[in-house]
Simulated assay, not measured.
Amino acid sequence: MLSGFVERRIVTSGAEIHACVGGNGPPLLLLHGFPQCHAMWHRVAPELARRFTVVATDLRGYGRSERLPGDPQHANHSKRAMAQDQVEVMRALGHERFFVAGHDRGARVTHRMALDHSDRVLRAAVIDIVPTVEVFERLDQAMATAYYHWFFLIQPGGLPEHLIGLDAAFYLRRALGSIGSGGANAGVFDDAALAEYLRAFRDPAAVHCMCEDYRAAATIDLVHDREDRAAGRKLACPLLALWGQASVVGRSYDDVAAIWRAYAPNLTAAALPGGHFLPEESPQETVEALVGFFTG
C-alpha cells in the first residue's frame, strides 16, 4: 500500500511491531486507528515522505504487528504500553526525538506518548478525537449512539469477539460506515486498503486485541488520564488537533479547540472538510495541515 516504503519488523520490550519506512528528512511517526492499520496512510504518507522520514506502524494487536493476550487489568493494551512500543521502534530506527501524528486510536496513543515521553516527542498531531476521559465524562444519548462500538467492544466474556467473528467482513464495513461520514461503499476507501483491514479482521486474535484496546480505554487508560489531570500535567510540546467538519467529533462538541486547550496550552486547531477518516477522505487538506504544522 505504501509504494517506495521498506517494511521492517522491530522487536520492542513489549511486542514485535510492523513498520513501513520511507522518505528523507526529520522523522515523523504515523499511528493509525480502528478498525484499520498502517495502510490508512496510503494517500498521505508518500506526500509526507517528500519532506520527512516517515514511519507508519501497526499498533500492537493491529494489522501485521504481534497479537498479545488480554489480561485482567487490560494493561497489555493500555495506551501507555502502546506508546512505549512506538518510542522503542523509533529508537531502533535511530530516531531519539521525532514528530508524531495519530488518527483515532493512534491519536490516543499519541496523546499518551506526548505525556509519558515529553523528551522524545517534538511536536504531536491528533486527528478527530477529544481526550478519552472527556468522551466518557461528556457522554449523552446522541454520543452513545454514535459511539456505540465503544460500549459493544468492551463487553466481557468474548461476546464482541464471537459476534464479529460470525461475519468479519460485514462488521468491518459497518464500522467504517457508521464511524465515518461516507462509508465503505461511498468510494472513500481504496479496495486494497479494505483488503488489508479485512486481513486482520479475519484473525480472531486481532479482533480480541482490538476489543482489549477499547477495554483498556474504559479502565486503565482512564486511571492514567485522571491521575495526570489531578496532577495538572499538560502537554509540553506543541499540539495540532484536526477534526472532520462532518465527523461525530465535529458535530457533537461545541468547541473542540477549547476542550484540547485544557490539555495542551500550545495548541493549533482546525476543522477540515470531511468526516472521521480525514487521511482517506481529505488527503490533500490533511497533508497540508500536517506539513504546515511540522515545518512551522
Rank of each mutant, 00 (worst) to 15 (best):
E280F: 09
V54A: 06
L239A: 06
A264R: 07
H111M: 10
R120T: 13
F98W: 12
G274E: 05
A125E: 03
V133L: 13
G177M: 05
V54P: 00
T295F: 11
A271H: 02
M1K: 03
C211G: 04
L122T: 11
A216P: 01
M1D: 01
D225K: 09
V207Q: 01
A262L: 08
V109H: 01
Y253F: 15
E281A: 08
A270T: 12
E280Y: 08
Y171E: 05
V21W: 07
A246T: 09
H224A: 15
A144G: 10
A218D: 03
V223A: 14
L194Y: 13
R112V: 11
R80M: 11
M113S: 04
G158S: 06
V55C: 07
T12I: 10
R138W: 08
S247Q: 04
A186K: 13
I164G: 00
H77Q: 08
H74Q: 11
A19K: 11
W260R: 08
F52W: 09
E280L: 13
Y62F: 15
R8K: 15
D190N: 13
Y62G: 03
S181F: 02
A184I: 14
T145G: 04
N24L: 07
G25N: 06
E47S: 14
L48S: 05
G33M: 13
F151T: 01
Q284Y: 02
V207C: 01
E285V: 11
A175M: 15
D203Y: 10
E285Y: 01
I179H: 00
A258G: 08
A56Y: 09
T132H: 02
H224Q: 14
K234F: 05
A107C: 07
A205C: 01
L48I: 09
R174D: 14
G70N: 06
W41P: 01
L29F: 12
R67H: 15
M90E: 03
G22K: 12
F136V: 12
I154R: 14
T145C: 02
Y197C: 05
H208C: 04
S181L: 01
S118V: 07
A289M: 06
R9C: 03
G61S: 07
D104K: 06
G94W: 04
V89C: 01
A107D: 03
V135I: 15
A231H: 05
F151E: 03
F136T: 07
H224I: 14
V21I: 13
P27L: 15
M113D: 01
R215E: 04
P273K: 02
E134V: 15
A217I: 05
A241F: 06
A236T: 09
Y171S: 10
A289G: 03
S13G: 13
I164E: 03
